[in-house]
Amino acid sequence: MDAQLFRAMAHNNAWANHRLLAACAGLSQADFEAPRTGFFPSLRATLNHILVIDRFYVDAMEGGRLGPDAWADREPCADVASLKAAQSEIDRRLIAVVERAGEDGFSQIVAVDRRSRIQHERLDRLLLHLFQHQIHHRGQAHAMLSGTAVAPPQLDEFFSVEDAPLRAREFQELGWTEETVWVENR
C-alpha cells in the first residue's frame, strides 16, 4: 500500500477524533455519562472504548506486549478533557507508526498478544482494521451526540474547499499543515 494513503488516513483519523472530542467538550459531565442508545451505553463508554482499543493495537504495532491488559480499565478517562489528551497522545503514536512504516514497509509482521495466543498479522491489515474500528465507533458517538444540545461535527469531508479556514485552525491546534499530511516521498 502507498505510504501517502496511510499517512492521510492516520492524520484524518486523528483529525476526526479531535473534532469529535472538541464537540464533546461542550457537554456537561452528566450528558457525557448519560445513558444513550449504542453498542456502548454512553458517550463516555464509547469514546473510552476507542482509546483502549487504539492502545492495544498501537502498542502491538510498536513492538510492545501490552495485550489484553490494555482493557483492564475499560474507561480510563472519566471526563472529556482527560480523554481528549489521551486520545491525542495515542493518535500521535499511531501517526509515528505510519511514518516509520513508510520507511520500513507496511508488509512487516506485527505480533498481537491475545493472551491465549500471539496473532501474527501484516501491519497494513492491522492499520486498515484499526481505522475501520475507529470509524465504526466514532459513527456511534456521532449519533449519540446528535441527541444532545451539542451539534455533532462534520467528520466525513476530509479536505473540502469550503472548510479551509476551519481546517487551518484545527490543523494549527494539532500542530500540522496540509504539507504535513500530503508531502510525498518523505
Rank of each mutant, 00 (worst) to 15 (best):
R74L: 13
I135K: 04
L127R: 07
R117C: 13
S82H: 13
V112N: 06
I118Y: 14
R125Q: 13
D73T: 08
G139R: 00
L128H: 03
R115V: 15
A81T: 07
A111P: 08
H120N: 09
K84W: 15
D69W: 05
R74V: 09
L130T: 05
A143W: 08
D91I: 06
R65T: 12
L123N: 01
L128T: 04
D73N: 06
E75N: 08
A85E: 09
A70M: 05
D91T: 08
D91A: 10
G105Y: 09
D91R: 09
R65V: 11
R93E: 05
C77Q: 08
R93P: 05
A72Q: 11
D91F: 08
A72P: 02
I90F: 10
V80P: 03
H137K: 01
Y57L: 06
C77N: 10
Y57G: 05
L127M: 15
L66R: 08
V58E: 01
A85L: 14
K84L: 15
Q108H: 11
H120V: 06
Q132H: 15
D79I: 01
S82P: 10
A70Y: 02
A85G: 10
Q87I: 09
V58M: 04
K84E: 14
S116Q: 15
E121K: 15
D59F: 01
V98F: 06
H136G: 01
E103Y: 13
W71I: 10
A78Y: 07
G67Q: 07
H129Q: 13
A72R: 12
V58C: 00
I90R: 15
A141Q: 00
A143M: 11
A111D: 14
E62L: 09
E62C: 11
P68S: 13
R122F: 06
Q87D: 15
R122D: 04
S107N: 13
A70V: 04
R92D: 15
R138W: 00
D73Q: 05
A78S: 09
A78C: 06
L83D: 04
A86P: 13
P68G: 09
V58P: 04
I90G: 12
A85S: 12
R93G: 05
D79H: 03
R138L: 00
A72S: 03
H133N: 02
V97W: 04
H142I: 00
S88V: 09
P76C: 09
V98R: 01
R117N: 14
H137E: 00
A78H: 10
G139H: 00
E103G: 14
A70I: 06
D113S: 07
P68K: 11
H129S: 07
H129W: 11
R114A: 15
Q87A: 13
Q140W: 00
Q132C: 13
R125W: 11
V110H: 00
R125D: 12
R115C: 15
Q119G: 14
F131V: 05
L123G: 00
H142W: 02
R93K: 10
W71D: 11
H129G: 03
A81V: 08
H137Y: 00
D91K: 09
G67T: 04
A143Q: 06
D79C: 02
I109Q: 13
F106I: 07
D73V: 10
L66S: 02
Y57C: 06
L123A: 01
A72E: 07
D69N: 11
D79K: 07
S107L: 10
F131M: 07
